[in-house]
Design a binder for these strands. Sequence first.
DNA 1: ACCTGAACACCGTTCAAGT
DNA 2: ACCTGAACACCGTTCAAGT
Lengths: 206, 206
Amino acid sequence: MARPREAKLSREIIGRAAIEYVEAGNDLQLVPLAKKLGVRVSSLYHHVRGREGVIQAMRHVLVAEYVPDQPMQEDGDWADRVRREVETTWRLYTDHPRSLALMLTVVIDEPDVMRVYSTLVDALVEAGVPDDEILTTVEVIDAFTFGAALDALSPDQILEPEEADGKLGELLPGHLVGRARNRAMFDHGLDLLIEGIRSRVDRASG
Amino acid sequence: MARPREAKLSREIIGRAAIEYVEAGNDLQLVPLAKKLGVRVSSLYHHVRGREGVIQAMRHVLVAEYVPDQPMQEDGDWADRVRREVETTWRLYTDHPRSLALMLTVVIDEPDVMRVYSTLVDALVEAGVPDDEILTTVEVIDAFTFGAALDALSPDQILEPEEADGKLGELLPGHLVGRARNRAMFDHGLDLLIEGIRSRVDRASG
DNA sequence: ACCTGAACACCGTTCAAGT
DNA sequence: ACCTGAACACCGTTCAAGT
């Protein structure tokens, strides 16, 4: 039974299993992962380049699942389109925060961000952002989305209400917590960025 | 020579050595770290709780070095104060991007962000941000700074200019790269956020 | 209190052997 | 082509022993 008639593994199977395993709260370790797959560790190496390859497989699976190949529908104004596009990335991230943290440690080999960037560029052109600010603005949106998603990883009580004084101490007790806090923060940040872009364009054009 | 007259190690010494070691491009491994310190691995455990403790010591050292205990000078308008405060955090992050990525993996035990948050809260009060938006706005600024700093970790050519078409393909060749790109992105993002905050407050107050 | 050295369980990776 | 099993170098952690 050294070689089964049908392969028990594939890059996709390994990637998906790793995502499940990691999001369940486990560290990514190949021995237990292989066990979960009903296979020995060494088998993984026929499909994936070691531990790093597993992480890339995870990314591959998530992108295939979340990021559509075709451009999205183009209705609505530029701000709507930005929101819709970023929402996709946001979902990918926040549905798999622990996988996201892992992906941070490996070099990305697939330039799949291309379509996402392209959509954002087109939306910003429509918004009237000057050429020499467009890519930088796209990067800003990207960085914020990323940072906001990672924020979901940090434990809730970074700030102990008891130790805070002044206005901060006054505001902390009534503040949102958990996923709701994280989501509200993301929405508000996107609002501020869009508002900032709009205001900047308005001022420049008169 | 089992116990030297003066201790060869301390939490600070270990933390500082680990930062140097990691920022030099190495993975954080205790055996080589101990060697660098002229000591056996097991000695580290007298000062720090294992590998995770080393990472916390790294954070401790960096915060002590970068984040002042006392509030910063209060001159300038609220936007200036926000910029000044965030610049400190930004420096801490971007001067040590690889340490930053490591810190992401451990739970922070010290609530040292308190003072930073407090300063930002006060600045936003002055800006006229309504109470129920203040903390969320602070979190937005924090998340963006964090995401922007991590952006420095990703390799420069995520997007191959050759494969891009349309406006994106037109803009890519002339775009900044490396640290300059990262810094320009951070500055622009902060501009947009501040502009967004200002515009939002103006609209609400009439 | 602090450093050592040996011991432990476990990890990722390689590779010849089997179908 | 794909799974196995053994072997390898190495890792983090623990702990009794030494000063």
